[in-house]
Simulated scan of single mutants.
Amino acid sequence: MRRVRFALLALAVYGAGTALHGAAVAREPAKPMALIPFELERAKERGDRAVLNLNEDVTRVPGFRISELPVVDGKLGEHAKLDNVEIYFPYGRIVTATAEFHKYRITRVSSGTAAMLDPRYQRVRSFDQQLGKVCASEIGSNGEKVEMRIAPNRVMSVVHVLPPQQPGVDGDTSPSYRVTSGLELRFLSRKEPMAEQLYRECRRPAGTKLTQKG
Rank of each mutant, 00 (worst) to 15 (best):
residue 144 E to F: 11
residue 30 A to Q: 10
residue 143 G to Y: 06
residue 24 A to H: 11
residue 98 T to D: 02
residue 74 G to N: 10
residue 78 E to V: 14
residue 83 D to A: 14
residue 109 V to C: 06
residue 41 E to P: 01
residue 106 I to V: 13
residue 74 G to V: 08
residue 23 A to L: 13
residue 125 R to P: 01
residue 106 I to A: 10
residue 108 R to T: 12
residue 35 L to Q: 06
residue 20 L to V: 10
residue 123 R to C: 03
residue 106 I to H: 00
residue 141 S to F: 08
residue 67 S to L: 11
residue 98 T to F: 03
residue 137 S to L: 11
residue 69 L to Y: 08
residue 19 A to L: 14
residue 124 V to W: 00
residue 95 V to N: 02
residue 28 E to K: 15
residue 42 R to S: 00
residue 118 D to P: 04
residue 108 R to N: 12
residue 25 V to T: 06
residue 53 N to Y: 12
residue 73 D to I: 09
residue 108 R to Y: 11
residue 74 G to R: 12
residue 142 N to Q: 11
residue 141 S to H: 10
residue 133 K to Q: 10
residue 55 N to Q: 14
residue 36 I to M: 01
residue 148 M to P: 03
residue 134 V to F: 03
residue 105 R to D: 09
residue 49 R to V: 12
residue 91 Y to E: 15
residue 50 A to E: 11
residue 131 L to C: 06
residue 59 T to E: 08
residue 32 P to V: 13
residue 46 R to Q: 07
residue 135 C to A: 09
residue 60 R to L: 12
residue 80 A to L: 10
residue 116 M to K: 13
residue 110 S to Q: 15
residue 51 V to M: 11
residue 85 V to E: 00
residue 24 A to I: 15
residue 61 V to I: 15
residue 129 Q to R: 14
residue 26 A to L: 12
residue 131 L to P: 03
residue 117 L to V: 14
residue 91 Y to F: 15
residue 59 T to N: 04
residue 53 N to Q: 06
residue 139 I to D: 05
residue 60 R to P: 01
residue 29 P to L: 04
residue 141 S to G: 13
residue 56 E to Q: 15
residue 46 R to Y: 00
residue 37 P to M: 02
residue 82 L to F: 05
residue 122 Q to I: 11
residue 146 V to E: 05
residue 97 A to N: 06
residue 23 A to S: 06
residue 21 H to E: 15
residue 88 Y to V: 07
residue 126 S to H: 11
residue 125 R to A: 14
residue 121 Y to E: 02
residue 121 Y to R: 08
residue 86 E to C: 01
residue 71 V to G: 05
residue 133 K to W: 00
residue 30 A to F: 01
residue 88 Y to H: 15
residue 33 M to S: 08
residue 147 E to H: 07
residue 37 P to E: 00
residue 120 R to M: 08
residue 87 I to C: 03
residue 39 E to S: 14
residue 30 A to E: 13
residue 135 C to G: 09
residue 60 R to Q: 13
residue 34 A to S: 12
residue 133 K to I: 07
residue 27 R to H: 11
residue 37 P to S: 01
residue 56 E to G: 07
residue 50 A to V: 03
residue 113 T to H: 12
residue 138 E to D: 15
residue 110 S to K: 15
residue 112 G to P: 06
residue 86 E to G: 07
residue 47 G to P: 02
residue 84 N to C: 00
residue 44 K to L: 13
residue 110 S to R: 15
residue 85 V to R: 03
residue 31 K to H: 10
residue 71 V to W: 05
residue 107 T to M: 14
residue 132 G to Q: 04
residue 58 V to P: 04
residue 119 P to R: 07
residue 74 G to P: 08
residue 83 D to C: 08
residue 57 D to F: 02
residue 55 N to K: 04
residue 64 F to Q: 08
residue 114 A to I: 14
residue 137 S to Y: 03
residue 72 V to T: 09
residue 136 A to N: 12
residue 105 R to S: 12
residue 44 K to I: 09
residue 44 K to C: 02
residue 117 L to G: 06
residue 135 C to N: 04
residue 123 R to W: 10
residue 109 V to G: 11
residue 23 A to E: 07
residue 106 I to F: 00
residue 100 E to Y: 09
residue 124 V to I: 13
residue 117 L to T: 13
